[in-house]
Every structure is written in structure tokens, then in C-alpha cells.
Simulated assay, not measured.
Amino acid sequence: MIYTITLNPSIDYVVQVDQLNLGELNKMENEMMFPGGKGINVSRVLHELAYDTTALGFLGGVTGDFIAGELNNKGIRTAFTPIKGDTRINIKLKSGSETEINGRGPEIPPYEADDLLHQLEHVTGQDMVILSGSTPPSLTDDFHQQMIERTVESGAQFIIDTTGDSLKSVLPYRPLLVKPNKDELAELFGVTLSDQDDVIYYGKQLLDLGAQHAIVSMAGEGALLFTEEGIYQGQAPRRQVKNSVGAGDSMIAGFSGKFTETADVMEAFRMGLAAGSATAFADDLAKAGDIFPLQDKIDITRIAK
């Protein structure tokens, strides 16, 4: 089983306005609501690819009920920890360019946080845990570390997709995969990355600090995979990018699903690139029919030892 953890899920409320006039009454042309959150996105794509997944995290209030209902209607298994606070709403205002207004997230008292930690005691060595996204401000700074300690004690592999100190603090626990983008890698080490050689140097540092594998995504330049055996550059076919939201989550879903199936990191990288690219080329998270045909069109080249 692949468990995803979304600590701060949301309803993504997408509003389309032809022309936004600040300080005046505006009428929307279209509106949509989706279950939001990086771990939830990973579970949605895993389910689309027919891999067993269960979505974990915190949900509360009518907003939490909406998210649980939408996922259950899609046939996605969930085991969210109920909380008294209301799950947040993130507003995506589309009017020419897109403006985002993200909620902070609910207050989560220690006893509710402990409920989620106890769930990880049931994870086994046959499972994988994926931790993605931001943390509600009410949780302690070491909450990621507490979750990973429980996961590692169970013998399960874990993947983490977060940034900054939260990422750096868990590298010694040997994550199967970390996936910063180029900007996040620069921020993590407090540097400016001028060229690919800089990306390679600091990508290697992720392995030196404990990661088993690392993928650094570089938008139109593809992605770099760092392994103990070598460094590989992967590139998908160039097409019009329609949607950057969820592309990284889709990459993690493709990688984790294929790795649990084959234990082959190169095939996992290929599937990850196909899934991430398919979402970038689509209006929403990619469907299986978009992902599978891309696998054979992914170009992977070894560029360094």
C-alpha cells in the first residue's frame, strides 16, 4: 500500500473572471471546486494508474466533508484523521494571469496530531509513505520528523516532498526520494544556481546528506535524477504547457507506483517523467490514457557518474 499524507489539505476554489476590476463588483464566468493538497494529488494519480493508495491527513468541517466525499466518489481509499477545525479553502482567481489566495489552515491541538501519528504505527515494511506539502502553522516544527521516525521504525520506505528546514531535517533518515525543483534546491542551500553544473553539485549534496535518490525538476529543461550509480537527465517531448499545478505531484505518483511494482529506479524515473509531463500538458491531473503513451517518448541520458 502507498500511503499519502496531506497535513494541510484544501478545497481549491477556481474562479474565472474575464476582466478583474479591483474595488468594483466582478461577476464570475465560471467556478470549479476540487480536493486540493499535494498528497491528495499524488493519491489521485496513483489511483488513476491503478496502484493501491490510501490518503491520510487532517480533515474537518463541511470543507473536509466535501474533500472526503469527492475522493470517495472517485473510488480513492481514505483514512483521514478528523479534527474540530475547518479544512481551509484556497482561491485560484483566473483573469488573464492567475492569482492565488491560500488559507493558513486550521488549529490542530496536540491530541489530534497524536491521532495521526498513531495511524503510522499500522504501517508495515511492505508499504510506502509519501509526505507532501505544507504544514499547518499550529503543528510543531518537528512534526515531519516525528512522522518519519514512526515510518522508519515500521520498516516502510518514505518519500518526502517539502522544502527548507523540514526537508533538511529528515535527510538523515534515508528517504527513498526527495524532489526539490531548481529554485527549492537553491533555497535549501542558500545559494544561486547559475548553470547545470551548480545543480549537479548541490543535487549530489542531497545524497551525501542521506537521500537514496533525488530528482531535481527544471521545468522546460526536464529533470535530473541523482543515484549512487550516476546522474541522469530526463526529457519529455516538448508540447504546450497548460497546467503546472500538480505536475510535481504526478511525477511522485508515477515514480512511487512504478518503484513499488518493479524496484527499478530508472523505470520509476521514466514513469514519473511521463506522469508529470502528462499533467503539465492537461487542464487537470493527467489520466492514465495520457500518461502511458508518453513513457516510450521519454529520453533519458546518463550525464555524470
Rank of each mutant, 00 (worst) to 15 (best):
F34M: 02
S256K: 09
F269L: 03
L209S: 09
N102W: 04
K92Y: 00
N73Y: 06
Y51W: 14
D115H: 05
D208P: 00
G254K: 01
S277C: 08
I200Y: 10
F143V: 11
A288Q: 11
Q157I: 10
T135I: 10
N73T: 08
Y3F: 15
G203F: 13
F292A: 12
S217L: 06
S194M: 13
G210Y: 06
T6C: 03
E221A: 15
N181D: 03
K204Y: 07
A214V: 12
G210D: 13
D115A: 15
A236F: 00
D283E: 04
V14H: 07
M147H: 00
P172S: 03
S169Y: 00
E70N: 03
I215R: 06
A268Q: 13
V216D: 07
L294Q: 02
F58I: 01
V191P: 09
D195A: 05
S132H: 04
K92F: 00
K242W: 08
L139R: 01
S194K: 15
I148F: 02
G272D: 06
S166T: 13
S97I: 03
D161S: 01
Y13R: 04
D142R: 10
L188H: 02
A236K: 01
S194Y: 10
F281I: 02
G272R: 14
A211M: 11
I148P: 05
D115G: 05
K179W: 09
Q16G: 09
Q295W: 00
R270H: 03
L120S: 11
H122T: 14
I148V: 15
T53F: 13
P109C: 08
V17T: 00
E31K: 10
D141S: 15
P106Q: 10
G230F: 12
H118W: 05
G69M: 10
L139T: 04
G125Q: 11
I231S: 10
R150E: 10
K297C: 06
N102H: 00
A219S: 11
P175G: 02
I298S: 05
D18P: 07
Q235R: 07
I215P: 11
P137W: 00
L225V: 01
E29V: 03
M28G: 14
L139G: 11
D195N: 02
K179L: 02
I101P: 01
E29F: 04
M1W: 05
K297I: 07
T140D: 11
